[in-house]
Design a protein around this nucleic acid. Structure first.
Lengths: 140, 140
DNA sequence: CCATTATAGTTTTACATCTAACTATTGTCA
DNA sequence: TGACAATAGTTAGATGTAAAACTATAATGG
């Protein structure tokens, strides 16, 4: 029997995940950081020569939002901006030492979130969920 | 093969759904209204003697948020506040004529969203999705 | 070459939402 | 009964996010 509340469930899960991430930041005394900052740092741990535009695309936020997010990460000393030598429009975002040192923490939190998301499911159910969600997203 | 990106997918779907709802409001020339206002109105169409607290619980927003949302709905003339006779702490939210007239529009939008969410799935897949999401939410 | 167009990024402005603190009212229990 | 706790709702303040407009730079085609 279909209930029709998938949209509501998805919205609630999203809020719950964000809340959990925030509480993990809190627990580890990382202040002033929100989930989107985490998305940026996690992306930076896996890629080099990352531009603002590239970040915006990958964390699924607008360019102005990324500007603000990077402003704060820079202010906290986790990243620095670096201009491209040949194309002055482009800005690369580089991790600082301090930003790099956060890697284990963000990795732990990623693992914890994934555990919370998939921990109650069998392998097969986890795959099913992803398949259905990918399918659903493709329709928008 | 599990990808581990269910949280990201859910976040993206949520954003896409909200965007679709906003564009439907736009298309029907309903101005200044956000999805949460829609949630409130849809709830009011189905229930009577609704309090602020009850609304907050059912649309999964905080009490201050509901205060602000109702302020706007009242300002637009869609609802009115009414004090309880015996317990003066309680405020009931009532639909006005103008609010009631919006029913067909919000109903249409609800149908459209549900169609978009479930339209690409078989009955069985729709049920599976809901089951998995309910299960997932319960773990938070 | 130069004018137009495209691209990268920021600033401005607006707003939905939350937490914390507050007011007002009602309930409780010693 | 009267002090304290609980409950309903609002206000104040902060912040994440986006759209629109803007600046600056590069690419392109006549």
């Amino acid at each position: 029997m279909i209930n029709g509340d998938a949209a509501s469930l998805i919205s609630q899960i999203r809020d719950a995940v964000n809340k959990l991430i925030m509480s993990e930041f809190e627990r580890r005394h990382i202040k002033g950081i929100v989930p989107s900052h985490g998305d940026i740092l996690v992306y930076l741990y896996k890629h080099t020569n990352v531009t603002m535009k590239e970040l915006a695309e990958h964390i699924h936020r607008s360019k102005p939002t990324v500007t603000v997010l990077i402003n704060k990460l820079e202010e906290y000393g986790y990243v620095v901006r670096e201009k491209d030598g040949s194309d002055n429009r482009i800005t690369y975002i580089k991790l600082t030492q301090k930003g790099t040192e956060l890697y284990p923490i963000f990795n732990d939190i990623s693992v914890e979130i994934r555990e919370r998301m998939y921990g109650g499911f069998s392998e097969q159910e986890g795959e099913q969920l992803e398949q259905l969600l990918q399918n659903l997203l493709r329709r928008f």
